[in-house]
Simulated assay, not measured.
Amino acid sequence: MILDGALPEAVARAADALAAGELVGLPTETVYGLAADAGNDAAVRGIFAAKGRPADHPLIVHVANQAGVARFAAEVPAFAGRLIDAFWPGPLTLILPRRPGMAEAAAGGHPTVGLRCPAHPVAHALLAACAARGVHGLAAPSANRFGRVSPTTAAHVAAEFGDALLVLDGGACDVGIESTIVDCSRGAPVLLRPGQLGQTDIERVAGTRLLSKEELSAPDPQAPGMLLAHYAPNAKLRLMEAAQLRTALDILGPDAAHIAVYARTPLRSASARLIVRRMPDDAAATAQQLFAVLREFDAAGARLIWVETPPADAAWDGVRDRLTRAAASA
């Protein structure tokens, strides 16, 4: 059931459902989430069951403001506090030491917890309404089956879980890919997942260099979005350079069918059955539409999706990460 998230009565109905231990589809600026009361382990286990997600694969907990951090985190390093001040509300998740006994199921039983304050007005309205009902944080991974393409509209969520799930419609997501994740639990900031927020901005605010996962000998903490294969459409996805795309289309000629192409480079094909979408030259615009395009290709019956490899510059890191993981599922 999709309700207009701009209506106070719809937000109240969703908050009542969450307080009762039910699941709700939640719009954020990144992607839509499948939300439950982070303090209700039984409700959170419902998320894992609905998604088919392993119970030890942790979820991000969404809080209304900085005050919500103290409820779930045992400590906040000074550099993490600076990141919160600068980038919340926004598409940044911080991994922090977890307060014992809090969000046990949402954290997958791990000693850390991922926290984020979303920048979507419907999400904020829902978090405030939930707080009035004694619910002070929402566990909310992407509202899709585990490992599949993330949803960026309310209709995507309904297509995944059916009419029985209450979904607040907040329009198409502005960012379109999941949040940047920075691990703040090891004394220095470590980039676990790229997103819209870039490394240069994070380092400027943190006042220290942002380490990569590969620089540390210690194992990574369990965090969302860390699987090699993830974000996958039903069709097999392959990343290809422009020259490879041209050659492949020339070889297939008029026989190209059940193939969808997403590329910045103008391409020609002798086949009228080829599905082609133009990839924007801008990384942010590509991120905003990426998951919706992959879902469109699936809906059109594509069996193969060929995507032009994104540019190597840092602005494309988030898009490149999602496409690389989607291709690994093929």
Rank of each mutant, 00 (worst) to 15 (best):
E241Q: 15
E241D: 15
E241M: 12
E241S: 15
A242I: 12
A242K: 11
A242Y: 10
A243W: 13
A243G: 14
Q244M: 08
Q244A: 13
Q244R: 01
Q244K: 02
L245H: 07
R246H: 11
R246T: 06
R246A: 13
T247S: 12
T247I: 11
T247H: 14
T247Y: 06
T247Q: 09
A248I: 01
A248E: 15
A248Q: 09
A248Y: 00
A248W: 02
L249F: 03
L249I: 10
D250A: 14
D250N: 11
I251R: 08
I251Y: 12
L252R: 09
L252D: 03
L252Q: 07
L252S: 10
G253W: 01
G253L: 02
G253R: 01
G253K: 05
P254Y: 09
P254F: 07
D255K: 09
D255R: 11
D255A: 15
D255C: 04
A256T: 05
A257K: 09
A257D: 13
H258T: 09
H258Y: 14
I259P: 00
I259C: 00
A260S: 15
A260H: 08
A260M: 09
A260I: 05
V261P: 09
V261F: 07
V261E: 04
V261K: 08
V261W: 10
Y262I: 02
Y262H: 03
Y262P: 00
A263C: 09
A263L: 07
R264F: 06
R264N: 03
R264K: 06
R264M: 03
R264W: 04
T265C: 11
T265Q: 13
T265V: 15
T265L: 13
T265G: 12
T265E: 14
P266Q: 07
P266S: 12
P266I: 15
P266Y: 14
L267G: 03
L267R: 10
R268K: 08
R268E: 12
R268W: 04
S269E: 05
S269P: 01
S269F: 03
S269D: 10
A270E: 07
A270C: 00
A270R: 04
A270M: 03
S271R: 11
S271N: 03
S271Y: 10
S271A: 08
S271C: 03
A272D: 14
A272F: 06
A272S: 14
A272T: 14
R273I: 06
R273T: 10
R273C: 07
L274W: 02
L274D: 04
L274V: 08
L274R: 00
I275G: 02
I275N: 01
I275F: 05
I275M: 04
I275H: 11
V276K: 01
V276G: 01
R277N: 03
R277V: 13
R277T: 07
R277S: 10
R277K: 14
R277Y: 09
R278E: 13
R278P: 00
